[in-house]
C-alpha cells in the first residue's frame, strides 16, 4: 500500500501532515491547483469526508484556499509556507531532543553526535 497511516492518530490529521510536508518541500508548488476531493480520496484511499476535513483544516491554516468555482489552490503566500517549514523543522528537532534525552544523552552529548554525523556525511 502506498499510503500507510498510524493507528493512534486521526486519519485527517495525518493527511494534513502529509500535505504540509508536500507543500513546504515544494512537491506541491505555491499557487498550484489541487486535485478534487474525490480524486485525492481515491489517491490516498481514504473516505472523501475525511479528505474534505483535512483540506478544511489546511484552509484554516492558510496553506490552501478555495475559489468558489474553480477549486482549491496552494497558497501563493510564500512567507506563510516558509513559516510552516520552520514549524515542521522545530517539531522534528523537538522530537530529536526528546528521544535523545530518553536514551540518557545530555544536550551537549546529543549536540556532539549530531555534529559528528553531519560532518561525516559532508566528507562523503
Amino acid at each position: 500500500m502506498p499510503n500507510q497511516f498510524q493507528s493512534n492518530i486521526p486519519i485527517y490529521l495525518q493527511l494534513v501532515h502529509k500535505f504540509k510536508h508536500r507543500i513546504v518541500s515544494g512537491e506541491l508548488k505555491a499557487g498550484s491547483k489541487l486535485e478534487s476531493v474525490r480524486d485525492l480520496a481515491i489517491r490516498f484511499e481514504v473516505n472523501p469526508n475525511t479528505m474534505q476535513r483535512a483540506l478544511t483544516e489546511l484552509e484554516r491554516d492558510g496553506l490552501v484556499y478555495a475559489e468558489r468555482t474553480s477549486g482549491r489552490f496552494i497558497t501563493k503566500d510564500t512567507k506563510r509556507i516558509h513559516k510552516m517549514r520552520d514549524t515542521l523543522a522545530e517539531e522534528i528537532i523537538e522530537q530529536f531532543i526528546l528521544q535523545m534525552k530518553s536514551l540518557g544523552f545530555s544536550n551537549q552529548e546529543a549536540m556532539e553526535l549530531f555534529q559528528n554525523k553531519i560532518e561525516k556525511g559532508m566528507i562523503k
Binding site: 493507528s7 493512534n8 492518530i9 486521526p10 486519519i11 490529521l13 473516505n47
Partner: peptide
C-alpha cells in the same frame, strides 16, 4: 466517527 474513535481511544478501529 472513525477519527473521533482514533482521537478519543488512541487506537485504530481494528485495535
Amino acid at each position: 466517527d472513525i477519527d473521533n474513535i482514533r482521537s478519543s481511544e488512541g487506537k485504530s478501529i481494528d485495535q
